[in-house]
Design a protein around this nucleic acid. Structure first.
Length: 286
DNA sequence: GCCCAGGCCTTTC
DNA sequence: GAAAGGCATGGG
């Protein structure tokens, strides 16, 4: 067990873990969160003395990459300050980072996410891991990994249905049947546009789900997922700038990517979190 | 009991 | 190519 440190100004676990980019996260105590990704686990523990959070795990190098430590967030946030909506959003949800999750886990997670709510997605993916993931052990104890591609190839549509995946069960079964390791490798080497087009060929993956997979599973920051919440962001803050000719989510997506370029991913996370949480009276972290 | 959720697929025009 | 309807399920 080793640990590394992230300063509060560049990392806030409440905001980073509850903006819908990962689903296997638990609050263990007021100052402790646990995150599972593929077959790894870490805990973030507050370090008040240093003003930030220590990330403890048995896989430090993996989590340094996962938490995107080599990226200069101050520089990105500086560029985003000039947009009023972002300025507000970054003040409200300060310390969001883009986590570099596993490609296959993100494909399954975001197919599951469509027309679904976040707390339900969390439950489904945790149950899936319990049912089909390998048992793992680290210095915190035992836990379940996210199922691998080959483990899920044995799962049938009816099995997903029995677990509550609903009509997404067919999408999962079809896409997992069509996937293989070569395709996953290929996706990681394609440029963003080609990878997006490839993702769109799979059942249950449309533009929004593809963008989430690209952002969180392939670390492509030049994408901007547009869902119901971001559509509200557009209508609240950018509609005028879009000259009232932008109607579809795909058009909004292209508008934002053109506007924010390589900073699109982080901009989207701040705007999503702000739109979704700011109207609530209390933030709820499970 | 009702509306909604990190949308996509299918059918129809 | 755009529009409309259907979809499983449970959170709030």
């Amino acid at each position: 067990m080793t640990h590394f440190f992230l300063a509060e100004q560049d990392f806030n676990p409440f905001h980073t873990f509850y903006c819908g980019q990962i689903f296997r996260v638990e609050k263990i105590a007021d100052d402790v969160f646990e995150v599972k990704t593929t077959s790894y686990r870490c805990r973030t523990i507050m370090n008040a003395k240093k003003g930030g959070w220590d990330i403890y795990s048995n896989n430090e190098e993996y989590f340094k990459s996962f938490f995107d430590v080599s990226r200069n967030y101050a520089e990105i946030k500086q560029r985003l300050q000039k947009y009023p909506a972002l300025k507000e959003g970054m003040k409200f949800g300060y310390g969001i980072r883009i986590l570099k999750s596993n490609l296959f886990e993100m494909i399954v997670s975001f197919i599951t996410s469509q027309n679904n709510n976040i707390s339900r997605i969390r439950g489904l993916l945790n149950n899936l891991s319990q049912a089909y993931g390998s048992k793992c052990k680290d210095d915190f104890g035992t836990f379940c990994a996210f199922p691998t591609l080959s483990q899920l190839k044995k799962v049938r549509e009816e099995d997903y249905k029995a677990m509550g995946f609903g009509y997404r069960s067919r999408y999962l079964a079809k896409t997992i049947a069509a996937l293989n390791q070569e395709t996953l490798n290929e996706l990681s080497h394609l440029n963003t546009q080609d990878a997006r087009n490839k993702l769109l060929t799979f059942c249950g993956i449309g533009g929004k789900v593809a963008d989430c997979i690209l952002l969180f599973g392939l670390a492509r920051n030049d994408v901007f997922p547009v869902d119901v919440w971001v559509e509200r962001v557009f209508n609240n803050h950018f509609k005028k700038e879009g000259k009232n000719v932008i109607k579809t989510r795909e058009q909004m997506r292209n508008f934002f990517v053109h506007k924010f370029g390589k900073d699109s991913g982080l901009a989207q996370q701040y705007l999503f979190f702000y739109q979704r949480e700011a109207q609530k009276q209390f933030l709820i972290y499970i």
